[in-house]
Design a binder for these strands. Sequence first.
DNA 1: CCATTCACTCAACATCCGTTGACCGAGCGC
DNA 2: GCGCTCGGTCAACGGATGTTGAGTGAATGG
Lengths: 188, 188
Amino acid sequence: MPTPHQSRAARRRATEARILDSARELFAERGFDRTTIRAVAASAGVDPALVMQYFGSKRELFTAAVQAVPAAPPTAGPDALVDQLLATLGLKLGGLPEGTLAMLRSMLTDPAAADHARAALGRQIDGIGAALPEDADAELRAALVVSTLLGVAVGHQLLGLSPLRDAPADRIAALLRPALAALTTPTH
Amino acid sequence: MPTPHQSRAARRRATEARILDSARELFAERGFDRTTIRAVAASAGVDPALVMQYFGSKRELFTAAVQAVPAAPPTAGPDALVDQLLATLGLKLGGLPEGTLAMLRSMLTDPAAADHARAALGRQIDGIGAALPEDADAELRAALVVSTLLGVAVGHQLLGLSPLRDAPADRIAALLRPALAALTTPTH
DNA sequence: CCATTCACTCAACATCCGTTGACCGAGCGC
DNA sequence: GCGCTCGGTCAACGGATGTTGAGTGAATGG
């Protein structure tokens, strides 16, 4: 309504993007089950039926909202690995992308989100495992690294544990660094 | 019905316990929202109305099912701390108690469960923080320790990440130990 | 042996949610 | 200018869920 003059296709794309943004925000905040199509539609200033028309079903809307999770960038040196991991955590950017948060929020209660999470985390594990020095436990160590970062992300972004919420990102990174180094270094 | 001869009070206590067990199992498996009172009742071989009569509401049933989470045992030495933490993880016992799993499963999507989780994890953090050597970052390091264990618990018990699921518990503990030691040791 | 208690069931209500089909009106091409 | 396309709305259905109130039958206690 307030947009004065636009091509029909442009308006169409704009409202679709508005719906997707509202969906991402609500999915990230409340998770899949507690996010209703009606709430997404209201937040986007649109009729619920339109959401269905554009995305087919609530499931497909969720999939579309979460899809923007980028894979881990190609790992370079084994030393820069830890820095890269800390960046992945999103501590440097003040937060993970909302689509990722939506997936994390729902991963424990929605089987489809759990599959998505397992796949994404599995890819991370494989990437890190390949960058680690050759060792029988490389994959397991990579899994522990990813689990550690997952725990910090959950505690910080999703649960808001007070010591984490109030701490500056670089201090968290500084304290985490030796722990990640210990996990990535064979101990024999 | 199959129980042949019992006092009325005993039967009553038995069915209440059966309901609680079914509730814990389903809450741990599917989380708060996806667990229906009808399903709990069916699993306990009972009418849904009886669940209401005994526990008042679905919320109170959940609270009762989750309540059995024990606080951290009084921390002794600063060296045994890491061992104790690994025990808390439940790796040695093949799994955390089902009430704890129920709370963890729902903590990202149910605000009440999130409060419960924040409180329980906060208590853990305080306990560990007090056991750490005096340092300005003690509480933050304790929070990172708890987050790490939370991440491993989630990845292992709730998501079932394959490298973690297939690894023997003592190997996970062995790899985790130096990382936890790095977190609990001031680095200056 | 009888009245009462009490564990337990049955049927129903109210609400909410995902989803659908008919419908409307403004912008587009001709 | 006209008819068609299409972005968008409206009203409704069907199912599931938490919750309730009346009812039933067996164990209890006197």
